[in-house]
Design a binder for these strands. Structure first.
Lengths: 248, 248
DNA sequence: CCCGCTGCGTACGTCACCGCACAGAAGCGC
DNA sequence: GCGCTTCTGTGCGGTGACGTACGCAGCGGG
């Protein structure tokens, strides 16, 4: 099947520089990259790389959202960070490790682009703006991971759900998430029933509308009020390090 | 007061390359660095940098251990990573952010060395082995943070205490930690009483000996058996990325 | 149309950890 | 030795999340 046709079918945008990291590249660099950048469809659940596995490509989501998920021996899991149109999947390619101990899964279907590992690595090693941009992004990602650790320790499921919704919302065009409660539970590393209850409270309060795997956010301001400080800290750090990459 | 005298008093080693990151530098690079590297005493509780604060130096512990601690609004806190003789404090200097949202506190008194921020940054920007070494270290630190996040979510206080003891032990010469239960609780982000109980169990089982702020580890193998997978994962990743930097 | 699948709501007992409160024990200065 | 501070041990009620087990409701296919 023709990839471009598929994209049309899903009404997905084909401009690679919808990805804010690619958009932040100086034109001179982008000119070198663009021949190698290829579009990919990113359906829900697609695994971009497995823990410890070899990465063939780096991914740049545009409309999709990808979760970095850590899976424990016994099957329990937890999301350690989320990446959307502001970022890249595969930082360990240039950090030098080749692999990561986490798994990257598409959390919200959409489109993206990819680049062969070798291309990214040689571009990174040229130094200059590419290197600094990627490292600044990594620093922002690092903040998100640290905050996730603290949040897991100290904050309630209700607060964490709000945080998670907001993080996802920041990486979407609209205010609708296609996502079952079981999947959210998986991301947050909690029970599915816990999410049902927390989401029920938000629904009752009129902040969101939940209908069989489709969440509509109705009152974003109230969500921000209910969540813990973690969301604001992470958001602020992204804005500081990568100005203009996240919407709103 | 004379710094060297202080160091003698504490019987601390004055060789900067006791720090494994410095030791891993090629001799040619080290020759350039060494004039700028100055010894520092790192007493318990010393704050190397504050959340959001400006960093004047990067630190390279030799016998000291430093915790990266995140402090929440209400005073609650959690450790997100620990750094000893295998690493560096101040990665955000070269990652591009200048500051971090965490605090660096000396967790176990000892010695270390430091380097002016500007020197580190120019050395990093030369690219080559220095850059790749520092990035590989950062990647290992990243793994530690991710694992901390998951551990906070899924594992019991008992397991986490064992993990914490082992991580600290790996960064010490002997098997004795100078550390009150209140401080450990602070690091783990739990109640002091919880640590008392968990440590009591380990004491009763003969794995450690606890005496007013001094922990002696008696049976390391058993500790490893009681902890969660998180310790092994992190250890393995450090060994893979930075071979030979951690003892044992 | 009915069946079956998937997603959501509810209920109940259990448990780890929390917050608080207080008592004993070890070290230190005088 | 005395008194103070610091550190550690213990006890008790509260609670948020867990594991388990069902019931029900939308939705699509045979």
């Amino acid at each position: 099947m023709d990839v471009a046709a598929l994209f049309d079918e899903y009404e997905l945008n084909l401009d690679p520089r919808e990805n804010q990291l690619l958009a932040s590249l100086p034109d001179s660099e982008w000119a070198r990259w663009s021949p190698y950048v290829e579009p990919v469809e990113l359906p829900l659940g697609r695994v971009l790389y497995e823990s410890g596995g070899k990465m063939t490509h780096a991914y740049f989501p545009t409309t999709a959202i990808v979760s970095l998920l850590y899976v424990l021996d016994r099957g329990a899991s937890a999301e350690i960070a989320v990446v959307g149109c502001e970022g890249i999947i595969g930082i360990s390619l240039f950090m030098g490790g080749e692999t990561t101990s986490s798994r990257a899964v598409v959390q919200s279907a959409g489109a993206g682009f990819r680049l062969k590992s070798s291309v990214l690595m040689t571009e990174f090693d040229r130094g200059g703006p590419v290197l600094h941009l990627l490292l600044r992004y990594t620093q922002a990602l690092l903040t998100q991971m640290a905050q996730t650790a603290v949040c897991n320790r100290h904050h309630s499921l209700d607060q964490q759900l709000c945080r998670w919704l907001l993080l996802s919302l920041d990486r979407l065009r609209n205010n609708e998430l296609i996502m079952t409660q079981a999947l959210i539970a998986n991301m947050l590393g909690v029970r599915r029933e816990g999410v049902t209850e927390a989401a029920g409270r938000l629904d009752k309060a009129g902040l969101i509308k939940y209908q069989r795997g489709r969440i509509t956010v109705l009152d974003r301001a109230q969500l921000e009020q209910r969540t813990c400080e973690c969301y604001a800290v992470v958001k602020k750090e992204y804005d500081r390090l990568l100005p203009g990459t996240l919407a709103v």
